[in-house]
Amino acid sequence: MIAAFTITPSFYLILAAILFSIGAVGLLVRRNVIVMFMCVELMLNAVNLTFVSFAKALNDVGGQVLVFFTLVVAAAEVAVGLGIIVAIFRRRRDATADDLRTLEG
């Protein structure tokens, strides 16, 4: 039998920490710029989950409000980031970080 247990906020916090780590490691090891970009989004959403879990644990609505700020910022970043990626795509048919080697030294 599976023992009954209650899901506490720390479960969500640990999940968020795992998601954040996946995002951070992914950003460092993946070479495709679009995938790196998705990893940043994963990190930001892990932070959102952390905020909401803490807000629930602390019984404070403030943390949930902060999530909206994060969402807005993430949306603005997506717009700018994709714009830069499209600009690079126009010049070359590829978007991997390894190709971006004009600047090296």
Binding site: F37, V47, G63, L66, T70, E77
Partner: peptide
């Protein structure tokens, strides 16, 4: 700049979340 800037912002924000917690 974008990739590393966004990465550092996410790290900073996680710091904010943990401090808030």
């Amino acid at each position: 700049y974008f990739v590393l800037g966004a990465f550092s912002s996410a790290i900073f924000l996680y710091g904010v979340a943990l401090t808030y917690g």
